[in-house]
Design a binder for these strands. Sequence first.
DNA 1: TTGTATGCGTTATCAT
DNA 2: ATGATAACGCATACAA
Lengths: 376, 376
Amino acid sequence: MFPANASGSDQTLLGGLRSISHYRAMTVLSPRPTMDDVARAAGVSKKTISRFINNSPDVSTAMRARVEAAIAALGFVPNAQARALALRRTFLVALVHDGSDRGMREAVESGMLHAMEGSELALVLRPLERDEAAGLRAFVDRHMPTGVVLLPPLSEREDLAAICEAAGVRCARLGRVRGEHDPTGNEACDDRGAMAALVGWLFRQGHHRIGLVGGPEASLTARQRELGYLDAMADHGFDRGLSLIVTGDYSFASGAEAARLLLELSPRPSVIVACNDEMAAGVIAAAASAGIAVPGTLSVVGFGDTAIAAMTAPPLTSMHVPWAEMGHDAAARVSGGLIDPLPDPSFETAMVLRGSVQAKLDYVRTSASMPEVMRR
Amino acid sequence: MFPANASGSDQTLLGGLRSISHYRAMTVLSPRPTMDDVARAAGVSKKTISRFINNSPDVSTAMRARVEAAIAALGFVPNAQARALALRRTFLVALVHDGSDRGMREAVESGMLHAMEGSELALVLRPLERDEAAGLRAFVDRHMPTGVVLLPPLSEREDLAAICEAAGVRCARLGRVRGEHDPTGNEACDDRGAMAALVGWLFRQGHHRIGLVGGPEASLTARQRELGYLDAMADHGFDRGLSLIVTGDYSFASGAEAARLLLELSPRPSVIVACNDEMAAGVIAAAASAGIAVPGTLSVVGFGDTAIAAMTAPPLTSMHVPWAEMGHDAAARVSGGLIDPLPDPSFETAMVLRGSVQAKLDYVRTSASMPEVMRR
DNA sequence: TTGTATGCGTTATCAT
DNA sequence: ATGATAACGCATACAA
């Protein structure tokens, strides 16, 4: 579909650089006013304008008004490139991900954008699907973003964090499993505990055959969710949980395929929990095409409470993960003071009950219309 | 959930600028080699390094090798900010959208990223949900992207295109309805004809009561699809099509709501066509919660063939719109020569048959497993 | 509180 | 084919 980008004579180290001799011909920029113009118009020096722009307290009220008027009159907008050069800092925040979980990415992105609204920062999107280290290095060296937000499972990689640090780029590692060495400081929630709570809740709904569609094996976050499942299973005296676990890769197709395997078991699971919502949607689709009613015959649970959870039929009961808040917090943390941090960053999960789970006990009912939230 | 960004004393024109006095303390950049360092190491002048970097033909082969060695030895990477300042051009391409159709956005984005792979360009994501003109002007003036790709319905707005032009920023207007004045030059396909073909195909499948969930009224693109529907209805002698049209806003919820209205009609439509896939997913969900079998009792068709089309149960039959190719082409066109354009940019739609449509004729069968594509 | 000189890393101009 | 010097637009150090 897409032709290979046959770009003739690339240099090894400067891959992708192309001749730019024709730029000038194409780009006829309208002459934008500079600080000099504003200074002249206001009858002051450049530095005063600069002070005004950077909100220096050392500008008198009268001067402030004069400068403001001149700026408004000329329609002056500070040149971000020049500021970046002088400040040795750009106004870019990068969202770096491997494309494995779009629901998560979408939620984080929206939280970041919300945080950046009204600031002078822009969001750069950088997928990193292979050659992670080399790709990230080239990206940060070239564009020098002010901050980088790494999504799982990339956030788990020390080498990537080291690359950011070496480049002097602040780095937020989202959803990373907390180690002994750094118990705090990053945006993460208790995946293991959340999954254990979810499975425990299923037990209380009367479910005992609980299948799990795991996330990518390389992802520590996904592994934590699997451990949470095993915790809850063990709590209820089921040690043979492993036989009910099928590993997926967070994609819809892998969820459907995993469901096909799980639904062949006998006795069949009464509920299948997927480690993200997209795989859960795959489970629902597989069940539907096998003629198995959801939630009548099979209950399905997702994880993440991302956009797709509300778009399946029936809508997905899912564990809410505050990706948007984490994105907001991360963007603020790597923004170098350009964004106010969230006041109270406690990233707690919560069950969101929609319609994809049916209790196996008479006295418990789940609502199929409005989602219901159970905070833990 | 998110606190208002209470950022004290904002200036009218410079909203969002904050004090940056503490940057230096936080950012201790490792001393990156500059062109001066490379020049010294290679024993030549800066300008020669510059020529090498910009692929100037005026560099001898011997010199080329020397410079290349020095660059490799020092690990030199050109500073994009300094280049941007000198060249008066950044290395950013912006994707500007209003968030109304995520499927479309995702596909365009992936096409753009594919195009930009290996180039020195980065993708900036800029939602513009309100204050479109002011927001775009502020963004473009501040960050001066090399190019801007406008998604529908923003792409239809002349004022936004004018803002880009005034700022000297190349602008691609995706999916815009071609007018008399500019019949060509932009990435668009024949929405009206595609929808007419889709509805015509439904007629040939034996459907006669065909409901339509329209897109946002303000969107000319959506309006074109509606006209295509009316074309096909008229072709088959149905002038009362209007009664079977409900307007949505491209969201899942609006699709579900529209379906509820359409399913109350008597006689009920045998098929509902939605103007995008997300609304079609809403139709499926509404049908499911009303106990109406899809495709057994009600067929459903989407438009766009975006990611969600494959994730519904049953999977959606949908009209493929080559958003990814359009994104690729647009990115190339606004890249200022940094990306090779697609060789043969003909943006054609195609029906993708999955499982959400059941023919009402015995001799026609649709496959429910592998999607089948009918090129027009 | 305001102004002057200089630097940020690269490219363009004009020379050789 | 290569080099010296002046932009590019803004911020900082230091002076006034």
